[in-house]
Design a protein around this nucleic acid. Sequence first.
DNA 1: GTACATGCAAACGGTTTGCATATCT
DNA 2: AGATATGCAAACCGTTTGCATGTAC
Lengths: 146, 146
Amino acid sequence: MNDRRTIFKTLRDLGIRLTPQRMLILDILREGNTHMGVEEVYAKARTAFPYIDIATVYRTLNLMKKIDVVTEVAMGERLHFELTNPDQKHHHMVCTSCGKAFNLAPEYLERFGEQIRSDLSFEPDIRNFTIKGKCSFCAEHLDEAG
Amino acid sequence: MNDRRTIFKTLRDLGIRLTPQRMLILDILREGNTHMGVEEVYAKARTAFPYIDIATVYRTLNLMKKIDVVTEVAMGERLHFELTNPDQKHHHMVCTSCGKAFNLAPEYLERFGEQIRSDLSFEPDIRNFTIKGKCSFCAEHLDEAG
DNA sequence: GTACATGCAAACGGTTTGCATATCT
DNA sequence: AGATATGCAAACCGTTTGCATGTAC
């Protein structure tokens, strides 16, 4: 569950201070309801609290990642984060044309991972996967573009 | 084929100058016979030609990538490159313990990609894939380590 | 009251770029 | 000769860090 109550309890139980900045950043991620880049979180945070520094955003996100409250998502070059939701784990498919990201159910990866595990004795880490490609809309609306 | 002759002919045909630096860098990649980080290419290049600059390495690698003579491989944070070999396309599995990389035959990805394509109407780009995980050696020799 | 978080500014590190000179064709 | 590649140094940009001050507990 990703309600405020549960998240904040997790932090308190770990002895992590609930500062306004941390609550704000977590609320932004929760309300965004998808992964977000650092700059995006920072921009939203500033509208609520103009003095917040981007270093605080980085520190908070990294801290939350360490305790698994947020998950880092590999979205191309820059860091993206989302709230860790144990109820609906998923991977991502990113459209290289429009930049939109789509969730990918874990089942697809599980079959794939199982093959690699059994055929190649390699234990793949399929907890956090990102696949690039073209979404159906872009695939349809452009023929030979990037 | 990745023999010098063929590569150099490709460059000449495209009107790209064959400078000593470019030949050197391509030779290093060819002899290395696997993907290499920029710093690694640079280090090797300097033993042969101490005045070479890392900017030249970057420029050459990016140029060769643009004309598809080398392929960029997503190996964690930094850029890695390898000679594009149409005869033996492959993907990579990187061990997060020892850092070693293993080739992965394209067939595994093709089945996987086909599922995504048909089930989800997403056209995955499976030309250059990297999977993290643990190689069999490391999986065996450490129990709960990073 | 005290340990820890924040804001600010500066550092960091990989990568790119501007420019004068050297080199390929 | 003319277009382009190189070396050098500086810029870039996302991210991290040091430090003095402010704040949650």
